[in-house]
Amino acid sequence: MVVQQLISGLAMGSIYALVALGVVLLYKTSDVINFGYSEMSMVGAFVAATLIISLGLPYPLAFLGALLFGALLGLFVERFAVRPMHKAPHISVIIMTLALFMIINGTAGLIWGHEGRAFPYKLNKDPIDISGVVISWDSIVIFSVTLLFMLSLFLLFKYTLIGVAMRAAAQNKTAAVLMGISVNRVFSLTWAASTAMGIGGAILIAPIIFLEVNMMQEILIKGFAGAVLGGFTSLPGAVIGSLLLGVIESLAGGYISSDLKSTFAFSLLILVLCIKPTGILGGKAIKKV
């Protein structure tokens, strides 16, 4: 029973982790918190569904297609909504992302309607039973894909010049410019990667919840919470915090009450932050100016 709850908690936590990674990535490089992220991710899940239904693409191809769409959407938003505001205070940019939320949510509702529907792909394999612990294929896919995302991100940041440049730009923009790094290019890439990651999360969760225009909102809030729990400026922290949140939520749902699972998880979040305000792996809280 405990193992069972742990596994489903980790699966949910993986989705939160993808979202948290996308949020923290963007925050680290450009100090922007993207409240439109849930809606940008949701659109990607609809794009994947459309690719499957209308074009008859197999699931993996539709997945990749939607990620590509996400990268382009990220580039577009950065170029036409964020970059023109480069002289505005960060808070204005953050409010702009709220506008993004409204615009995308409304437009998506107009295109795809407001009713929930099933995602047109479901793994119809029997769950694996390991001595009484049942692991669904959904969980396995979620784990593997999330792991793949994290691994790619790690390799990008650790072993490629552009990845190191992205980290450099996150730490000191002026010095990065003096190295010949184009900060605009770094921002574009970050938006592209971040959006693709959120869409990955949305497609993975879509077969479990319904495909619906508000589907990613609660997940974004959980992703934020996971990121804060782990320390908002640390990518590994975001992953650990999100997994932890998923597990706590699942255990609370299983042993206390499934109605109270979020209540319990978020109360714990507040408690942790009272004890360690910078989160589990967060460094000093430095206000950037």
């Binding site: 010049l161 450099a168 003096l178 790094i181």
Partner: peptide
Amino acid sequence: VSLGIIHVPEGRQIFPELTVYENILIGSYA
């Protein structure tokens, strides 16, 4: 920078969270 005009700014402005090697490497970015 690509022309070979390199500016080592006041107060060093190294990238504190990168390793020494990564800092040096990023100098060759352009």
